[in-house]
């Protein structure tokens, strides 16, 4: 079996500007995210990190500038991306496995099965538990398991290390390294280090 590798896609943002509530939050932001690359998005609170992610997800319209994917015409960035925000996107009344089965059906292009993905984030024993029973750290890891149930070249992460203990942070770094090795790309808004080599920093604001 040949190792999987993503098609060569580049996420390109040109001269983005963001205005919220009448206030210009940032302007002239450009970057290119190529296969195998990781970008750490930094900046003080309120600098617009989450707004930039919302723009990439198509949830927020840029004030100016453009976002496109080179190598795949007419496909929205969000359809090629995994998005893990600070909200976990899990239903507390459903079990961890049900949540992942749902995510897999929605995202398409299945990779690992939900049970395998849970094992990989170190939570094989919670598959049948309602997410409402889990601690914040466990929920976070279930949300991260979503990255593994479907293949998408871009991972857009908002504070991925938050709520994780040291072991889980190392686990996530490992997952990110694998994803980069397959030709995927990562853009993470973060305050701390991601535990990866060769991370490019894009700073928003002063």
């Amino acid at each position: 079996m040949t190792p999987f590798s993503f098609p060569s896609l580049v996420l390109a943002a040109d001269n983005l500007a963001c205005r919220r509530g009448g206030r210009l939050i940032f302007a002239d932001l450009s970057f290119r995210l190529a296969p195998g690359e990781a970008i750490a998005l930094t900046g003080r609170n309120g600098a617009g990190k989450s707004s930039l992610l919302a723009m990439l997800c198509g949830r927020l319209r840029p004030e100016a500038g453009s976002i496109r994917v080179e190598g795949a015409a007419d496909v929205a960035v969000v359809e090629l991306s995994h998005v893990v925000g600070h909200r976990d996107g899990l239903k507390t009344a459903l079990t961890a496995q049900e949540n992942l089965v749902f995510a897999q059906a929605l995202l398409g292009d299945a990779a690992l099965s939900p049970v395998e993905a849970l094992a990989k984030v170190g939570l094989p024993h919670v598959a049948a538990l309602p997410v409402g029973y889990l601690s914040a750290g466990q929920r976070r890891r279930v949300a991260l398991a979503r990255l593994l149930v479907a293949r998408r070249p871009f991972w857009l992460l908002d504070e991925p290390m938050a709520a994780l203990d040291v072991a889980a942070q190392a686990m996530l770094s490992g997952l990110m390294r694998e994803h980069l090795a397959q030709g995927g790309a990562i853009l993470a808004a973060t305050h701390g280090p991601l535990g990866l080599d060769g991370v490019r920093e894009v700073r928003i604001g002063p």
Partner: peptide, 22 residues
């Protein structure tokens, strides 16, 4: 059952964290 399940999930988590420091 609910209480025990939550405790068990926490315990297995601790075991996993101690057993396999990545």
């Amino acid at each position: 059952v609910r209480t025990l399940t939550i405790l068990e999930a926490e315990r297995l988590d601790r075991l996993a964290a101690e057993g396999a420091p990545a």
